[in-house]
């Protein structure tokens, strides 16, 4: 076999294989043909914690930040899946997120999340009824386009991924009354994540093109700005041991709505990975100003199951 044909094979493998796995998975899910199909069980062939946890929109990453990692532990020959629940208690609001994601061939990630933003006792202050809830559905797709988080330790090459998140608010009339131009929108992003294994350090940076107000819970676009703006999200994480990671996220957000200013969000977290089937995250969070109620700080807990 010549070098040329080997590299062609490798390219073909990298592109074709994950697609084949993804099609297999889709067929399995949509036709309920898993039981007697040829779909193998996930191999969990990647190293502990290298899939990250589930970020606030359901993608693989850390609290607020989308990493270039593909969720779960499926190797390039296999797939993995995760399900998660996150509950944040802020000064005047509660945020809950529930979702699931599939990673195919350590290449493609498809995710779904539902966010519930509970105004609780603050509802009436905003002219809403007591305990009014905002909901948002998010479908995400992410593709790893270059680099390998773990194996590229002899160069500065990070793992790079691009993706999109399709978001739809369930409170269309209200978010439009608050000034949003639309109740749905699409975020586009590019993410680079670098693991420096010899320093136990992971750094991630992401650029996101978005119109979302408060992640999209308050709709998309508004009087201040109707188009896309480029926003940053980044993480630094330090491995204390193989199963324990501490870190921080920072995320900027647009300020599209006229009725209330929107500020940047920050998180400091500790995540524990007892095994490849479970991770637990506890974090302090500052979501910035939300809906005239001042800076919203608080805590959140997140549990992720891995399959």
């Amino acid at each position: 076999m010549t070098i040329r044909s080997i590299s062609l094979d490798r390219t073909r493998y990298r592109v074709v294989r994950p697609i084949a796995i993804a099609i297999n998975l889709l067929a399995c899910v949509s036709l309920s043909a898993c039981a007697n199909s040829s779909l193998p069980s996930p191999d969990k062939g990647r190293l502990l914690a290298t899939g990250g946890v589930s970020q606030v929109e359901g993608a693989g990453g850390s609290g607020l930040s989308n990493w270039a990692t593909i969720t779960g532990y499926g190797s390039s020959d296999s797939y993995g899946a995760t399900a998660f629940h996150t509950r944040a208690k802020l000064n005047d609001f509660d945020l809950e997120v529930t979702g699931a994601a599939i990673g195919a061939g350590n290449r493609v990630e498809i995710s779904y999340a539902r966010q519930t933003f509970d105004t609780g006792d603050t509802g009436p202050k905003l002219g809403l009824r007591q305990g009014y809830k905002f909901h948002q559905d998010i479908v995400g797709a992410k593709v790893r386009v270059a680099g390998d988080l773990v194996f590229d330790q002899d160069s500065l090459m990070p793992q790079i991924a691009v993706g999109a998140q399709f978001k739809k608010s369930a409170n269309g009339d209200l978010v439009k009354a608050l000034g949003a131009s639309s109740h749905s929108g699409v975020d586009f992003y590019a993410t680079a994540t670098k693991l420096m294994l010899d320093k136990n350090l992971l750094l991630s940076a992401s650029l996101r093109g978005t119109k979302a107000n408060q992640l999209g819970l308050l709709g998309f676009g508004g009087p201040n700005q109707d188009g896309y703006s480029a926003q940053f999200e980044g993480s630094a994480a330090y491995m204390l041991s193989r199963d324990l990671v501490v870190g921080a996220d920072y995320r900027t957000k647009p300020d599209n709505l006229a009725f209330a200013a929107e500020g940047d969000a920050k998180v400091a977290f500790v995540a524990w990975f007892p095994n490849k089937s479970l991770s637990l995250t506890a974090a302090a969070v500052d979501m910035g100003e939300i809906a005239l109620q001042g800076r919203q700080t608080g805590f959140y807990g997140s549990v992720q199951l891995g399959f």
Binding site: Q153, L197, D198
Partner: peptide
């Protein structure tokens, strides 16, 4: 991890 970083590539 310093050792693993040398083996990973």
């Amino acid at each position: 991890n310093r050792f693993l970083a040398r083996l990973a590539p």
